[in-house]
């Protein structure tokens, strides 16, 4: 908040990542600005998840710089890393809920670990988070195996939001949801971004979500960022992959009207 309104909360510079001696990312530069929703697209297997996992520290990189909140993650000590982990939340593609814990305990898990609040407040916050993502408080006592796919995503989002993070990483949040649930989920992300002021890094394949939710879009191809910018810029781009992606059979005619109009 000390910086300007468009300062970068995540800065990725010239990042190179190898997976089993195969170069997946080859010099990636990307920024996530405070308060924006960045949509991240690319062909299947282009390395979108690899980049996400590299940023959050689950995969090692060969070279390059990753900064979160102005701290170089390679030079951060343990307590700085812990603070940064606290300030971001991750929604994994399959939800990654702990199957041996109830929904409530899943959401409470990071709260208990980091904040050491009273039991009463911990439970109340878990219920508040569940309600924020549009669930009934009574799912608190259910086990993840009893939930539907859409509910699992919502619970996972509630857990990702448990500590009021400033950055939210979403890995294909609407995959596996029906179009109505997907639209609701996008709306939910937008509402949360507006009420909580979080920055969102969203890997997605869903053209509808890119349209509905994202402020900016970055496109990954051949291990590099092909293009980054607003939807209008994407629609106007002459890059062949972008043209077939945004003007292909899955694209809706009304977007082009909307963008041009």
């Amino acid at each position: 908040m000390a910086n300007g309104p468009t300062d970068a909360v995540i800065r990725v510079r010239d990042v190179v990542v190898d997976v089993e001696s195969h170069r997946v990312l080859n010099g990636i530069d990307v920024d996530l600005y405070r308060g924006e929703i960045l949509g991240f697209v690319g062909a299947s297997g282009a390395g979108k998840s690899v980049l996400t996992r590299t940023i959050i520290g689950l995969m090692p990189k060969r070279q390059g710089l990753i900064e979160a909140f102005g701290v170089d993650l390679d030079k951060a000590n343990d307590s700085q890393k812990r603070t940064i982990d606290r300030r971001w939340g991750v929604l994994f593609q399959q939800g990654a809920l702990f199957s041996s814990l109830t929904v409530g305990k899943n959401v409470e898990f990071p709260i208990r670990e980091y904040l050491r609040l009273s039991n009463r407040l911990t439970t109340e916050m878990a219920i508040a988070k569940l309600e924020m993502v549009g669930l009934k408080p009574d799912v608190y006592r259910d086990y993840p195996s009893e939930l539907s796919g859409g509910m699992i995503k919502r619970v996972a989002l509630a857990r990702a939001l448990a500590l009021d993070p400033e950055i939210l990483f979403l890995d294909e949040p609407t995959s596996g949801l029906d179009p109505i649930s997907a639209a609701e989920f996008d709306q939910l992300i937008l509402t949360l971004q507006q009420t909580l002021g979080i920055s969102v890094f969203m890997v997605t394949h869903d053209l509808d979500s890119l349209h509905r939710a994202c402020d900016r879009i970055a496109v990954l191809g051949d291990g590099k960022i092909i293009e980054a910018g607003t939807m209008e810029k994407m629609m106007a781009s002459q890059h062949p992959w972008l043209k077939s992606y945004f003007h292909g059979v899955r694209a809706h005619a009304d977007w082009q009207v909307a963008v041009k109009g």
Binding site: A128, E131, M132, P137, D138, T195
Partner: peptide, 10 residues
């Protein structure tokens, strides 16, 4: 957003 919730378990 916070006010709109029921915050109560049955």
């Amino acid at each position: 957003k916070i006010r709109s919730g029921t915050h109560e378990l049955t």
